[in-house]
Design a protein around this nucleic acid. Structure first.
Lengths: 253, 253
DNA sequence: ACAGTATTTATCCAACGGGTTAATTTCTCC
DNA sequence: GGAGAAATTAACCCGTTGGATAAATACTGT
């Protein structure tokens, strides 16, 4: 319950290292940029772990090694803090995506790469999933106030649109598909699986996050999307075997 | 802020309608079953609207036209209440699914029907989406305590497994696919689109919930899954047109 | 008609939680 | 070396909230 003390800032530094006499002991040190970053990082953890209403401003301060007042001084109130975190999260994923360089791959390979990237990004950044879920439960009320976020996405959509068009022209893809629909589907297949893995693991009685399950999932998703686009049914798709004894599977999360 | 009074119970009934003298006025009336139902319904609304931490016990009581004490008397504390709501929600969807009668349709038609049902069910029951999201943010801690829920799903998985097997045997499906993967994918395509429509509408700058968008989404999803399974690229898949002026689209939610 | 139980109402409260105010300390520039 | 601005700490405020206690009222069987 009580905030875990990730680390306590021990700014009890010596001043004026040369002088022997004047070695005053500082109680703390100024560091506005660092403070802001620590606050945002702590807030990201707290919001993704507890949601918007569940997040505690005091815990964020504690995790950031800061006084609660600092949150308001450097960022703003709880909602503004949340928006800042969210913008940072979107910025990070879209900027990594830009590095994928899909334009120079042949279309099926580009799509496969996008799928794999999305899957791995979500795996590596579970807080991103939580933050989005939380924002959607709030009906995107924070995002609607953001100006930055909207502009970050048109280039991304155009990138996918180009890949699809090239695929159709080269004959690799059977069908032209709306890039927004396609991206939403690609994101959906990973997002839902991962963000709901806790509940899904319980209701289906098998651990969806162990190594084998994750490999199978990636193969399934790539196969599904690429088969639909190209018409050629790619490798994948494990055969459906009827369980004999329905042995209970551990549900380590 | 103050709880909206959905309806106020006016139990100020006349007793003993035949007798003229003894027409006592009751302050309230007993109704344990009805009370329990009203509490669960109110709780469903509150939890789906505000999440777990955001939900207010007092508001639930007010919405149910009950005294707060009643929640604890009839169901339990906040967490037990939430679990009860969740179990009810799962029970409802799985029971409707049983009525789909997929066993007697030819496999592609069965899958299409499952996709359409899932989509429409999520559209008709947005609280279901919220409840699941909330539960997953809580890492399924409530579901793990449930005994009922686990057993509700094996028959459902077997139903899909059978459809897939029949499809492979008849040659309709190119590939055998794990029924759990398939169902997760089908659910994912609808779930993510709808549960994240608020944020997606903002970042992509178009209203994903208007009539046209919804029709397109259903076509896209059916096309994607059936094309992948059958190899024949079904109708659908709108051509990707480059926007000329990128006209702003209203974002009614 | 009455006793006993089930159901519901009426209050209370202590901890919490977001946000604010005011005082303190550090840094920068002249 | 000192004044003024920036950054940080410390302490407080006050409405909220989940939950509890006790008293009141309705029903049931006899």
């Amino acid at each position: 319950m009580t905030a875990s003390s990730c680390y306590t800032r021990t700014w009890t530094t010596q001043r004026a290292p040369g002088l022997a006499k004047a070695k005053r002991t500082l109680k703390w040190q100024r560091d506005p940029e660092g403070m802001r970053l620590r606050i945002l990082e702590a807030a990201k953890q707290e919001f993704s772990a507890h949601g918007l209403a569940g997040a505690r401003v005091d815990r964020i301060a504690a995790k950031a090694g800061a006084n609660k007042r600092m949150l308001y001084y450097h960022v703003g109130n709880k909602d503004e803090l949340y928006l800042a975190v969210l913008e940072g999260a979107y910025d990070k994923i879209r900027s990594e995506e830009r590095g994928l360089d899909l334009e120079h791959l042949d279309p099926p390979e580009a799509i496969r790469r996008l799928i794999e990237f999305t899957w791995n990004y979500f795996l590596r950044n579970p807080e991103f999933l939580s933050l989005l879920q939380t924002e959607n439960l709030a009906r995107a009320k924070h995002l609607k106030k953001s100006t930055k976020v909207k502009s970050m996405h048109s280039p991304f959509v155009e990138m996918i649109r180009t890949v699809v068009r090239r695929g159709v022209e080269s004959g690799d893809f059977q069908v032209a598909v709306d890039p927004v629909q396609l991206y939403i589907s690609i994101a959906a297949l990973s997002f839902f699986y991962l963000s709901n893995s806790a509940a899904l693991s319980v209701i289906f009685g098998r651990d969806l996050l162990d190594k084998k399950a994750k490999d199978e999932r990636l193969a399934h998703m790539s196969g599904l999307v690429l088969a639909a686009l190209t018409g050629r049914s790619v490798e994948l798709f494990e055969i459906a075997k009827a369980p004999k004894s329905r042995s209970a599977v551990a549900q380590t999360v």
